[in-house]
Design a protein around this nucleic acid. Structure first.
Length: 886
DNA sequence: GCGGACTGCTTACCT
DNA sequence: ACAGGTAAGCAGTCCGCG
């Protein structure tokens, strides 16, 4: 910085005139303009470079008018953007109209984007016949679909809609499938096309797997050969940077508007896998003399900026340097704010390597992964991370998966000292990065494997739900087999019937069976369950949209129980085959291998990731057929899966009873057996695989199991004394902490029970716990925090129109005080006397607490356990309650 | 005008 | 934007009550 400028700046700072900084900046900007070039280190401008590397992403470049691919070369750690410059592939749709018929449609012939027609032969799975289709080829994706005068809209209709097939597939996906590209795999450019770099699979592995699958009664054809590289090619190291920004806010509790970008980015933090640990901090005059923060790691460098524009330029340069940019909520906030802020400060669009769509933010020279969206995905939350985090916030996820949390701050962001701000900001970036690196890069590996299986570009994969993943996988498999992808209307039109009535109003068909529990304490209970029941059913009973209610009259006697549906006897269904394959290879190979102690840790770890990725697809495979927006939506498939599932569990219960074994409970795919004995368990398992063709396994063994009359509600104690709790209120996230604690004490007591006699002592201890709970409540010894209910808002406040639940009442009080309240927020409130009976914890006093309401809650929480033990709640607190009446 | 029986809404959980 | 089934608490409605 020039001396003169510095001097003036110091003067301003000393005077505390923040506004005057702008003038200084203008001088700075003029002087340093020459250095404001974007320093891109991507390499597609180097003509001699050969495109090769891991395929991270495929997209469409509107300016160049062709598809592109982003390849990351782990050796030189650079990203290469390859373009289909020769236009080897063009957008198209398929129609059953002949070329001659098409030529009679003037709008089609005169369409600006039309390139020409071609002829293809496809297998129509719905009708079990080969058909000739005409390929209508266009110059750009919008000519195919997406505009009112697109080609697909100009075609005539039949009873199911426009006579256009495969016309709604995004072009960059279409390009991926047709070129048989597998994102996440290594490619090299050859003759203007991308070619898969051959992955050597050890012969013995191949043979092992081949033999394992051969024992199955399904013909898997070339699937094994195609997928082995996908599962076995390792994920290389990929450099990445996590970014996080902090923005000045004049008002508390207001999230800055990322479109307005009215205020300064006062801090921007970076944490990368190649050692970049920096925080850019904007100097603000009134915050000059601030204290040092001890906790900031020594490898983190704080760089102070005076010139806002310069800071942003440096920021953009960092974004340009990495193949992967990671954020937590960057789609809606960080990158969006940065973009609009840059525009506000005078940057031209072309200078900002960020591209915004309605709810996504992409980086031009790499791939932006918004971890918020990825971790928000329920399939990831449940199947990949086993429900370890319940709330989707950076802090909660970090605590659950990393064991670290955000920096605690006592003041609003805008009032922190610059060092405190830097520390806080850096920690967020670091946590964000660590969410992709922890456990030997588990998250990144998972993402790469999921892109390989789904064939989705990484950007799409991390933002979309499982139904999109399965859709993409199915599309690709249709193309490989030369199957015509049916129009969704055809599937619903031809097989839209449902034969069962759901138990829950508003649902579409009947689901699983929950066995009426036998209340009481049962010792020595063994739980048997079907290993992934629904996928097994889909595999074993040949379920697929084309095989359920197939066209052949001779198959109509192959009935699905409880329905009028029948299943094809002549052909293997596509879904049955694919899901069957994924299931078999997981169950027979990857899952056992992930537990094989003879393997080195790395190998085992890898098998474990593959196994988890497969689980996500397998578990979603049933639900998607009952989801309207899924393009292969087919209720008879979902309904048949559930019906056969019910058949399996009912038959198993019947068989158990025949063997003289008592079934005390069961849910969907499990049976709880009382003192069954080794031999009868073996017999049941043998019977199941023989009779039903589905594997039954021992899942859990309880020393004792406590059941009330409530379904989905039990407490089991394993032989080692650990306790398995399902569905009980005491464990629910919204239950006040004081009750959760009391509940946990009860659980601890019950864990020590070994025999019937022990229950007497336990009962006495539980009585003490309950009475202590009552006493502390009456004496108002609990803090408001401990008494608070924590309930999530699932939609915007305005959308609660039918009723006003308590947490909404509390949230509205908060909103009235100017708090920013949005969906996903957890509202913390206590129950108070009088109207409206509820207050946000922040506004309540301990003396307003409605003690009677809380007593009711104590009662129900305890009753759930006591019911099962055959103890009356009044028996436990009876004396005290009577006292109160007198 | 008030409370009990009922239905519906909402959330969190189970498989 | 994968499915259906269950528990719990509260909001809102209807009806009877001289």
């Amino acid at each position: 910085m020039k001396k003169a400028v510095q001097k003036r700046l110091t003067e301003y700072i000393n005077k505390g005139e923040d506004k005057s900084l702008d003038e200084v900046e203008i001088e700075e900007v003029i002087k340093e303009e020459a250095t404001y070039e974007v320093e891109a280190s991507f390499t597609n401008d180097n003509e001699k470079e050969i495109a090769s590397g891991i395929l991270l992403s495929v997209g469409y470049d509107g300016t160049k008018g062709c598809a592109y691919a982003k390849l990351y070369n782990p050796e030189n750690r650079k990203l290469f953007i390859w373009y289909d410059e020769e236009k080897t592939h063009r957008p198209y749709l398929l129609t059953d109209l002949s070329r001659e018929e098409l030529e009679k449609i003037p709008d089609v012939i005169n369409h600006k984007g039309l390139i020409g027609f071609g002829e293809v032969e496809k297998y129509d799975p719905l009708r079990d016949q080969w058909v000739k289709m005409t390929k209508v080829i266009a110059d750009d994706p919008l000519s195919i679909g997406g505009k009112p005068n697109s080609l697909r809209e100009l075609l005539p209709s039949d009873q199911w809609g426009k006579r256009a097939w495969e016309a709604k597939i995004r072009y960059h996906h279409c390009f991926t499938y047709d070129n048989n590209l597998i994102p996440g795999m290594p490619y090299i450019e050859k003759n203007k096309r991308l070619q898969l770099i051959e992955v050597k699979i050890p012969e013995n592995v191949k043979e092992n797997l081949f033999n394992l699958l051969k024992s199955e009664d399904i013909e898997y054809g070339d699937i094994l050969d195609r997928y082995l590289p996908v599962f076995l090619y390792p994920v290389p190291h990929i450099d990445r940077v996590a970014i996080d920004i902090e923005v000045f806010t004049p008002e508390l509790d207001r999230i800055p508007d990322s479109k307005e970008a009215e205020y300064n980015i006062i801090s921007a933090a970076f944490a990368s896998t190649d050692g970049l640990n920096k925080v850019f901090v904007l100097r603000r005059a009134n915050l000059e003399n601030s204290k040092k923060v001890e906790d900031l790691p020594s490898n983190v460098e704080i760089i102070y900026f005076v010139v806002k524009k310069k800071m942003i330029k440096k920021f953009l340069n960092i974004i340009n340097r990495y193949p992967i940019v990671i954020t937590f909520n960057g789609d809606n906030f960080d990158l969006r704010y940065l973009y609009h802020r840059a525009i506000r400060l005078g940057f031209k669009k072309e200078e900002i390597p960020i591209e915004l769509t309605k709810d996504e933010a992409h980086v031009k020279y790499g791939v932006h992964i918004d971890l918020y969206k990825f971790f928000y995905n329920n399939a990831i939350k449940v199947y990949a991370f086993g429900n370890a985090y319940k709330e989707v916030t950076l802090d909660t996820i970090a605590k659950a998966l990393l064991g670290t949390s955000k920096v605690e701050i006592e003041k609003p962001i805008s009032e922190l000292s610059l060092e405190e701000l830097a520390h806080y900001n850096y920690q967020d970036a670091k946590i964000t990065l660590d969410l992709t690196t922890f456990n030997d890069n588990l998250t990144l590996k998972l993402i790469i494997l999921l892109t390989r299986i789904s064939r989705l570009p990484m950007e799409d994969l991390v933002r979309q739900g499982v139904s999109s993943w399965v859709k993409s996988l199915f599309y690709a498999e249709h193309r490989i087999r030369n199957y015509l992808i049916p129009r969704p209307e055809e599937i619903t039109g031809l097989k839209g019937t449902v034969d069962t009535t759901p138990i829950i109003k508003g649902k579409k068909y009947k689901g699983a069976i929950v066995v009426e529990p036998k209340p009481g304490v049962h010792f020595n209970v063994v739980v048997l369950d079907f290993a992934s029941l629904y996928p097994s059913v889909i595999k074993k009973y040949n379920l697929s949209y084309e095989t359920v209610r197939c066209v052949h009259p001779e198959c109509r006697d192959q009935k699905v129980p409880e329905t009028n549906h029948w299943v094809c006897k002549k052909r293997r269904g596509l879904t049955s085959q694919i899901i069957g394959f994924l299931r078999d290879i997981r169950v027979k190979w990857f899952k056992p291998m992930s537990k094989n102690k003879n393997l080195p840790d790395e190998v085992r770890n890898w098998y474990s990731v593959v196994q988890q990725a497969l689980k996500v697809f397998i578990n979603a495979s049933y639900g998607v057929f009952g989801a309207e927006h899924f393009p292969f939506y087919c209720l008879p498939v979902a309904e048949s899966t559930a019906a056969i599932g019910r058949y399996a569990i009912m038959k198993t219960i019947k068989k158990a009873k025949e063997l003289g074994v008592e079934v005390v409970y069961g849910d969907t795919d499990s049976v709880f057996l009382k003192e069954p004995g080794e031999e009868k368990i073996r017999e049941l398992i043998r019977w199941s695989s023989g009779e039903l063709g589905i594997e039954l396994d021992v899942d859990k063994v309880y020393r004792y199991l406590a059941l009330s009359q409530r379904k989905k509600n039990y407490l089991g104690v394993f032989n080692d004394g650990s306790v398995d709790i399902k569905g009980l209120t005491g464990k629910k996230r919204n239950t006040p902490i004081f009750l959760q604690k009391a509940f946990m004490e009860v659980v601890r007591v019950l864990g020590e029970v070994k025999s019937v006699e022990d229950f007497e002592k336990a009962k006495e201890k539980i009585r003490e716990i309950a009475q202590e709970c009552y006493r502390k409540l009456e004496e108002r010894k609990y803090s408001l925090e401990e008494l608070a209910f924590k309930v999530q808002l699932t939609k915007p406040l305005k959308q609660y129109v039918k009723t006003t639940p308590q947490h909404v009442k509390a949230a509205r009080m908060l909103a009235a005080q100017g708090k920013d309240i949005r969906p996903g927020d957890i509202i913390t409130f206590v129950k108070t006397r009088g109207v409206p009976g509820v207050k946000p914890v922040q506004y309540a006093s301990i003396y307003e607490i409605d003690i009677e309401k809380y007593k009711d809650h104590i009662r129900t929480t305890f009753e759930q356990i006591l019911d099962a033990l055959g103890i009356d709640f009044s028996e436990i607190v009876g004396i005290r309650s009577l006292d109160m009446f007198i």
